[in-house]
Simulated assay, not measured.
Amino acid sequence: MSEDPYFLIRRSNLPEVIQKTTLVTELLTRRRDMSVLEAVRAIGLSRSAYYKYKDTVRPFSEAMSGKIVTIALTLEHKPGVLSTVLNTVAAKHGNILTINQSLPLQGIATVILSVDTHTLDATLDDLLQILREVAGVSQVVMVGQGS
């Protein structure tokens, strides 16, 4: 067993200083023009607290970045839906390694994508949410990950 194991825990169960650290990190990710000082002030956290914890706490989806993930999608059988999904992944710099699509039954097809996230310019959670918003996509689930 590892001497310093990892744990999965909901952000709401973390101490306030750790919650704020994650919020500062998210803010800096979204607003690349913002300085650390501006971000910690906006969230209400000291710079020293941020620097103390910033490298030790991160979202689960971020831990999956730089990995190969498998995503299952349920798509309506309409022209352009799969193309829009693939273009959406490409626009976020995800590298699609494999595509498997079932034959459509009752107007619905299942697509399984293997995506290399090494060059992804969004978080995995953000990519999954963007895919959920594509017209014709009814379900998006990350079903696995590898290195």
Score class of each variant (00 low, 15 high):
residue 1 M to Y: 09
residue 3 E to G: 12
residue 6 Y to A: 15
residue 6 Y to L: 15
residue 6 Y to T: 14
residue 8 L to E: 00
residue 8 L to S: 10
residue 9 I to R: 13
residue 11 R to M: 14
residue 13 N to Y: 07
residue 17 V to K: 15
residue 17 V to S: 14
residue 19 Q to V: 00
residue 21 T to P: 05
residue 24 V to E: 04
residue 26 E to L: 08
residue 27 L to Y: 09
residue 30 R to E: 10
residue 31 R to G: 00
residue 34 M to Y: 09
residue 36 V to N: 04
residue 37 L to T: 14
residue 37 L to C: 03
residue 38 E to D: 15
residue 38 E to N: 06
residue 39 A to S: 08
residue 42 A to R: 12
residue 42 A to G: 03
residue 44 G to P: 09
residue 46 S to P: 10
residue 47 R to E: 13
residue 49 A to T: 14
residue 50 Y to V: 11
residue 61 S to M: 14
residue 62 E to D: 11
residue 63 A to W: 04
residue 65 S to P: 01
residue 70 T to D: 04
residue 70 T to F: 03
residue 70 T to A: 05
residue 72 A to T: 11
residue 76 E to S: 09
residue 77 H to R: 08
residue 81 V to E: 00
residue 83 S to Q: 11
residue 84 T to G: 01
residue 85 V to H: 03
residue 89 V to E: 11
residue 92 K to P: 02
residue 92 K to Y: 04
residue 98 T to E: 06
residue 99 I to V: 15
residue 100 N to M: 05
residue 100 N to V: 01
residue 101 Q to F: 07
residue 107 G to W: 11
residue 107 G to C: 10
residue 109 A to I: 01
residue 109 A to D: 01
residue 114 S to I: 04
residue 117 T to C: 06
residue 119 T to N: 03
residue 119 T to I: 02
residue 120 L to F: 05
residue 126 D to I: 02
residue 127 L to R: 08
residue 129 Q to Y: 09
residue 132 R to V: 03
residue 132 R to W: 01
residue 137 V to F: 07
residue 137 V to Y: 04
residue 138 S to H: 09
residue 140 V to R: 06
residue 143 V to K: 12
residue 145 Q to Y: 05
